[in-house]
Write a protein that binds this DNA or RNA. Sequence first.
DNA 1: CGTTGAGTTGACCATCGTCAACAGGAGTGG
DNA 2: CCACTCCTGTTGACGATGGTCAACTCAACG
Lengths: 240, 240
Amino acid sequence: MSTLQAVRVSCCHAKENCLDCKVRLVSVCAALESHELGALEAMAQQTAFAPKETLFLQDHRVDFVYNVTEGVVRLYKLLPDGRRQIVGFALPGDFLGLAMADSYGFCADAVGSVTTCRFSRQAFSSLLDGKPHLLRRLHEFATHELSLAQDQMVVLGRRTAEEKIATFLVGLRNRWARLTGVSVTVSLPMSRQDIADFLGLTIETVSRTLSRLAREKAILIVPDGVRLLDPQRLEQLAET
Amino acid sequence: MSTLQAVRVSCCHAKENCLDCKVRLVSVCAALESHELGALEAMAQQTAFAPKETLFLQDHRVDFVYNVTEGVVRLYKLLPDGRRQIVGFALPGDFLGLAMADSYGFCADAVGSVTTCRFSRQAFSSLLDGKPHLLRRLHEFATHELSLAQDQMVVLGRRTAEEKIATFLVGLRNRWARLTGVSVTVSLPMSRQDIADFLGLTIETVSRTLSRLAREKAILIVPDGVRLLDPQRLEQLAET
DNA sequence: CGTTGAGTTGACCATCGTCAACAGGAGTGG
DNA sequence: CCACTCCTGTTGACGATGGTCAACTCAACG
């Protein structure tokens, strides 16, 4: 399945409507008024990706930028010897290609099934030239990403394994909360290896730490996620 | 000296001239044509900081944004128990306040003596509203910072102590090269503790690793810096 | 029913952190 | 001028956190 090509979704919603879009209000598109959405719709392509399918590779030419509408995308960098660092997980509403640069700064592939709203970089860049408020929105997104990256630098450089896991769970819960409402169950569609590569740990340490937190009744491990039994304890561990 | 107030430099260059500015071409100001610089000059204040003096604190209201013109600024976040992560070093030409947000995301203080070009956030933001090309330049700077932060995530999460030091030295050499020309001697105005807090190490590990690299003739430790005796070896260690 | 891949757990170990002692330079005051 | 302190940096001994290697379980799937 991992070799499937990205498909232009065309069956039942050939012309997705921006106004109906579930993520419009949390994504860059919110910068545009209803009457401006036409220009965006005209250049948007609904594109679906199968689990593990690649959206783009590091250092490749940027032909498209993406707005994630469903699913989770893994963003990562590789060292020559195969070590991997995941620099982020993109959730629905997140924008890939903020830099509008010539080449991608990292690899991106779908964790589970993913749908995106895809734009040719050139067309999007031109639209940007005429819409400073859209550029400002893009800039806000970029600085928000920068802020997340700096928080993650603290996690990677100065936190213990247990704190890393707690920070990850609490952070992900808060991100999901913006999208799907508050819940004590945190969906973890990514693998243990992904979590390890995000937190600068090994898969064994992630597994052991989750097991210990479960043994101590701070969390309950459920299929594809965890339930936070003692959010306070976790928030304490994650506290900035 | 660390309690000195920031001073408005006014003696010999009360009205600094943007056209003469050493860092104009590498800083955000390069987005403006000569005839647009007047508006910038009108709102700029040359401001100097003594070694260790604070430019701003995390979570404080953003009244000013800064363009570093001389010296090095340490940017860092603190955990409640005092652990510190340096998220970056700002060199001449770097801009502090990219986010144009309501509060600073990190603390900033001068490593050695620092001079900056300071703008009221409000005035700068207004200027931005009328100058989309300046906003675009700011956005480029923000995404460049994001890219550096992601590189640093790889360093913090997936590199050994020796690789971290090598990556730091090579990276800093390359940044100085843009400003002062190519040199095999890398100026290190920051302390060992600063380097440790940037790389997620302890001061002892930094000291030991530098000593070992010196013993193995990869570097030569000189006052306030190191000379790269075997750049190839270091670049190999730093290789992405 | 065998294979595969993800996850868990245990035993052992190495890298890096902790703690402590010491060296050298800058600044200060007798 | 010299003794003294303070601060930064270096080095050594030891230890703990997290990594490595290996065995095992379990679910999915052909």
